[in-house]
Design a protein around this nucleic acid. Structure first.
Lengths: 194, 194
DNA sequence: CGACTATACGGACCGCTAGTCCGCTTTCGC
DNA sequence: GCGAAAGCGGACTAGCGGTCCGTATAGTCG
């Protein structure tokens, strides 16, 4: 067995935070995440491009790190928080709460989530966070309406809150409340026994 | 009024077809549409890059032209074909038929549809064809379950058959029949009155 | 049939991007 | 302090979408 990995060097840690902060800032400022280049981020963070890429591997890695940061709280709440989001509430109430929370998250961090969904190949689904939501929702749907089609329906519900759809709706005049009502209606319909 | 626009020159027409054929071929061959460059298409078509871009404007224009070609038949059937797809059948049957037909289309032309959804900015929704499906579905849902939330639910149903989701499912072992069953279940649930 | 013009052709060219590479600097255990 | 390991940074590369313009050709008209 090799000795335990040495801890991160101080300068490395500082730079990592600087990059994350700069990236969050830049993605937040520009509406279109594709217009934020890795160069821009490196410059804004006061760091060389080499540093940026060594730390995060590629563009997708950076975006994933940012998203993970932003979803940490929600992940914790879903797995072990208070009802209705956390365990303890009935399945249908939990599903409604989860979808609503996801919608809120997407509305609050539109450009970042858009960046995730449009970075790299097949990204929207190759993603630990997505896996978690999907597993959780599948379990809730199974409990509420039976196992049949539960996995697909969970995908479908998550597809209904995809960032680019939310983006499209909000930029075409649909109000957040309207979207919220729609998501709730869809979730209710999906939860009912066939 | 200016005189009617002169007709397309013969060489131009030949080249247009050559480009469309080459592009369809290349997108079909490669799994990942982003790995097919405009250069590749021009070379495969035996045509200069200038010709390619003059004709189609940009990458998105080319993909749109390709997709329009592929969806022509379905569009015609939905607007004026025989039931259950065309007018005449009850709204719920038409909605089920439409979703099923769309799923079949996506399964048959995966790489091409993937190319559409990942080409250019905000593309999946800025698209005449999408508008048509959405309008049609919204009308059917309104008829079946009332006006409330119909527009959003139509978006949600279409999101459930998005190419990248279909791609993800098929490459992770879900069979087409399984997906089909899921789409049907979702559509049925959505059609029911609240 | 030959000449003339609008139209189209093609590939060199440009600007920009993600990602690499390696000589130099910094950190930190001893 | 000191030396090796870890980290740094920015010049560099390859490849992309898209443009430009001198050249070639189709179609037309006398």
């Amino acid at each position: 067995m090799p000795p335990p990995p040495r801890k991160e060097r101080a300068d490395a840690q500082r730079n990592r935070e600087a990059v994350l902060a700069a990236a969050e800032e830049l993605f937040g400022a520009h509406g279109d995440p594709e217009r934020v280049s890795m160069d821009d981020i490196a410059v804004a963070a006061g760091v060389g491009k080499g540093t940026l890429f060594r730390r995060f591997g590629d563009r997708l890695g950076l975006v994933k790190a940012l998203v993970e940061r932003r979803t940490e709280q929600l992940r914790a709440d879903v797995v072990a928080g208070p009802p209705p989001l956390g365990p303890g509430a009935p399945a249908d109430a939990r599903a409604l709460a989860l979808l609503d929370a996801l919608l809120t998250l997407k509305l609050d961090t539109r450009p970042l989530m858009l960046a995730l969904e449009s970075a790299g190949r097949g990204s929207p689904y190759d993603n630990d966070t997505y896996e978690l939501w999907h597993a959780e929702l599948t379990a809730l749907l199974t409990e509420a309406r039976g196992e049949r089609d539960a996995a697909f329906l969970a995908h479908a519900l998550l597809a209904a809150v995809r960032s680019d759809l939310i983006e499209h709706l909000t930029t075409h005049g649909t109000s957040p409340d309207h979207i919220r009502a729609g998501v709730t209606a869809l979730t209710r319909a999906t939860l009912r026994r066939p």
